[in-house]
Design a protein around this nucleic acid. Structure first.
Length: 441
RNA sequence: GGGGCCAUAGGGUAGCCUGGUAUCCUACAGGACUGGGGGUCCUGUGACCGGCGUUCAAAUCGCCGUGGCCCCA
């Protein structure tokens, strides 16, 4: 079916490992929950700005069996309107705040054109959405920073460089005060939005009447945030690290971390016995190890495991056994002979170095794809191959004109960076504001 | 929103113009020899996106549907 995806076992194994990192990063101060897929029309239609943003993409359930429903049910395109009515019931006083929850669920959006696996789906299968509630606008704002920090850590662990920017007002989440987004630059120079954090202010609090009693007894509206990551993170992971030989997976998320290829020459039983012993040793050190006893030739096995992105391959042959060593080959082609004695430590060290090498390589590509420009013409050229950093006065008019004339999208203002004054590429007004521009997936 | 191109074994393809026996590579299954970077030989398995129409006969021609790719707004 158009826009629907099937996770095969190998892909699912990667996904499990990737999402384990997300859970690990959120669990210390967030609680995992699960809310219903179906949202009654009356709840869904309460928040006007939100509806406007999603109404063309919502799937509706209109009958139960053969009887039409009195109240239509929306398949969640995102879960604010499913969750926030509950927040109204849960939150009574300042002591209930801050509240931080998340869920990892499927969401549905009726994309009318050009769906792409992992990137633009009608059923997003693995949407991690966090929702937080705070006593003040400022507290919510700092939660947005926390979210971006967690996501930054997440992408570092995937060895993926990224851009953080504040989306322009016309591209923020429907109902949000502002949206901060994380984009990864894909090998073709287009960007992929792989994480967003929204400051919702009190927009939804007003609509869903979410209030709390302050320490001196007044009722006050809460401030909220929400932030999300989907399986797009896996699209980025695959695209950025992959090369002509296939996938290259970071150690932490690789379904198979070590592949052992026995070289069956001479005393085959001996080679197999030693290989099995090594496999057992590494497994007990909690490594995910596969011993490849298929009857392909060794060369074919090497290519096979490289294509699957396995970080480290061990070759065990009669010559190695004689010397008490194994041949270790990393996914980035670094090849060494290491003693069997202390193999676990040696592999851990190589895994760390490989992770650093993956990150460095990705970072070099990333940096080469971002360029500062001064004019619309230069921005147009640069966005054909990567991301342009363009001086902008910050006005909405100039913003729209930039997008029209550069023929690319504005990602927004870079965060955590300051710039000297420069002339807006449209109106020439001096300002310290910059915006990233790129062609987007 | 508008337009163009395309759909053939699990994947990649030839055949389509000019209607008649569906090509090759790979993968997969069995066997033999092999084995430190994609092995060889033998024997098999497996496909014309769906519907309707034209015709003695449709992968091939026409219409509709579905799906994919690309361009423009």
């Amino acid at each position: 079916m158009k826009g629907m995806c099937v996770w095969f076992p190998f892909g699912y194994a990667i996904k499990k490992n990737v999402y384990a990192i997300i859970r690990e990063l959120l669990d210390p101060d967030h609680q995992e929950t699960q809310f219903p897929l179906l949202i009654p029309e009356n709840e869904f239609m309460k928040e006007a700005q939100h509806i406007k943003g999603f109404e063309e993409e919502v799937y509706w359930v209109t009958s139960g069996g053969i009887s039409p429903l009195d109240v239509k049910l929306a398949l969640r395109p995102t879960s604010e309107t499913a969750i926030y009515p509950m927040f109204k019931l849960w939150i009574r006083s300042h002591a209930d705040l801050p509240l931080r929850i998340y869920q990892i669920v499927n969401t549905f959006r009726y994309e009318t054109k050009h769906t792409r696996p992992l990137i633009r789906l009608r059923e997003i299968t693995s949407f991690k959405e966090a929702h937080t509630v705070h006593a003040s606008w400022e507290e919510a704002a700092s939660q947005v920073e926390v979210a971006i920090a967690r996501y930054s850590e997440f992408y570092r662990r995937l060895a993926l460089p990224f851009l953080v920017s504040r989306r322009p007002s016309w591209d923020k989440f429907p109902g949000a005060d502002y949206t901060t987004a994380i984009d990864v630059i894909m090998p073709d120079g287009k960007t992929l939005q792989v994480g967003t954090a929204h400051h919702l202010g009190s927009t939804f609090a007003k609509t869903y009447e979410i209030t709390y009693e302050t320490e001196n007894g007044e009722q006050k509206l809460v401030s909220q945030t929400c932030y999300g990551i989907s399986e797009r993170c896996i699209a980025a992971l695959i695209s950025v690290h992959g090369d002509a030989n296939g996938l290259a997976l970071p150690w932490e998320v690789a379904p198979t971390q070590v592949a052992i290829v026995p070289i069956l020459l001479g005393d085959k039983e001996k080679v197999l016995a030693v290989s099995r012993q090594l496999q057992a040793e590494l497994s007990s050190a909690r490594m995910r190890v596969q011993l490849d006893t298929s009857d392909d030739r060794p060369g074919a096995k090497f290519y096979k495991w490289e294509m699957k992105g396995v970080p480290i391959r061990l070759e065990v042959g009669p010559r190695d056994i004689e010397k008490g060593v194994v041949t270790l080959v990393r996914r980035d082609k670094v090849k060494k002979t290491v003693p069997m004695e202390g193999l676990v430590q040696a592999i851990n060290k190589e895994a760390e170095e490989l992770q650093a090498a993956l990150y460095t390589k990705a970072m070099n590509h990333h940096e080469a794809k971002v360029k500062e420009v001064v004019s619309i013409e230069d921005a147009k050229v640069q966005t054909q191959v990567g991301v342009a950093l363009v001086p902008w006065c910050g006005s909405v008019e100039c913003g729209h004109e930039l997008e029209d004339r550069v023929e690319a999208n504005m990602l927004g203002e870079p965060q955590y960076a300051t710039f000297p004054e420069a002339a807006c590429a449209v109106c020439g007004k001096m300002s310290t504001v910059r915006t990233y521009m790129a062609r987007q997936y």
